[in-house]
Design a protein around this nucleic acid. Structure first.
Lengths: 150, 150
DNA sequence: GGGTCTAATTGGAATAATTCTAGACAAGGG
DNA sequence: CCCTTGTCTAGAATTATTCCAATTAGACCC
């Protein structure tokens, strides 16, 4: 096995993943990816744009959309759709649901419990091939619940 | 218990539900609701508009949006958001997930199995109050699976 | 290192879905 | 019958996103 220098041996680097798809890791793509990893709070495309512009003032919104699309295409980032709102982006690759707080708007990741499968809860017809799923909850988050009960 | 004349005793009529919310059952609202009940295939607002216009040619798209909003507000109809596509509408009030076929675009209802709860599959923080959920699967529907295997 | 080929970025225009607005209309209570 | 309020309508406005054509940047080969 090749040594891999100062790096998490569990999963390939973003670089490797992108190269594996025959694409390049450009400065813009890295900046967008880094912005998502730095504050994992499910920002919208415009949020990401705003953040990335701090270090890369010339980047365009179209590029941010392109990069997010590329990153989701390679499986490095997931798109989160909550109701009719703008898409949000999430670099958490482990299986999880999203929880959207109606009070403060925060989005929380809820990890899937070990050996559980969402599809088991439903009656599926024969021959149904599931390739993806999205689970979203709505409600009041712990912080807001505490605040409200005061 | 009051007798209830020629009607499903299990649930109040759409009329009653709307009145219960202090609103009126207008011709437009009924037409939109009937269109949803007649073909329960998860139409978009524009689909509904097209269908309703056949019997009510003067109706406007804005009204269809208003009616759908009102009906969802009273809980008679559910809004289904699949990826970034236009919203779809569904008068199936029993708990269910949606399945979106990547081949043909059909949307299927998948009923929740008895005594199952989607939230059980996830690690929830204390104090999290869930008031709503939406589960969407993506994949290949039975019909398309059969077609593809030929 | 220069030339070449293709991928990526950019700004602006275009699109799609939805919401807003203001005026007309209609229903029901007094 | 009048008044109030809720509803409908057409069109304008908004929002998020995608498209487009032109430039720029990488990677590869010599």
């Amino acid at each position: 096995m090749k040594p891999r220098a100062t790096q998490n041996p569990a999963s390939p680097s973003a670089e490797e993943t992108i190269h594996g798809a025959g694409l390049r890791m450009t400065d813009q793509r890295r900046a967008v990816y880094d912005a998502l990893m730095a504050e994992r709070d499910h920002p919208t495309a415009v949020d990401v744009f705003t953040r990335v512009r701090e270090t890369m003032p010339g980047i365009s919104l179209a590029t941010v959309y392109n990069c997010l699309e590329t990153l989701t295409g390679c499986g490095l980032v997931k798109t989160v759709n909550l109701d009719r709102g703008p898409a949000r982006f999430c670099p958490n690759l482990s299986e999880h649901a999203h929880f959207h707080c109606e009070q403060c708007g925060t989005v929380l990741d809820l990890p899937l419990r070990a050996r559980r499968h969402v599809a088991d809860a439903f009656d599926l017809p024969e021959q149904l091939a599931i390739t993806g799923q999205e689970v979203a909850f709505r409600g009041v988050c712990p912080k807001c619940a505490t605040k409200l009960s005061k």
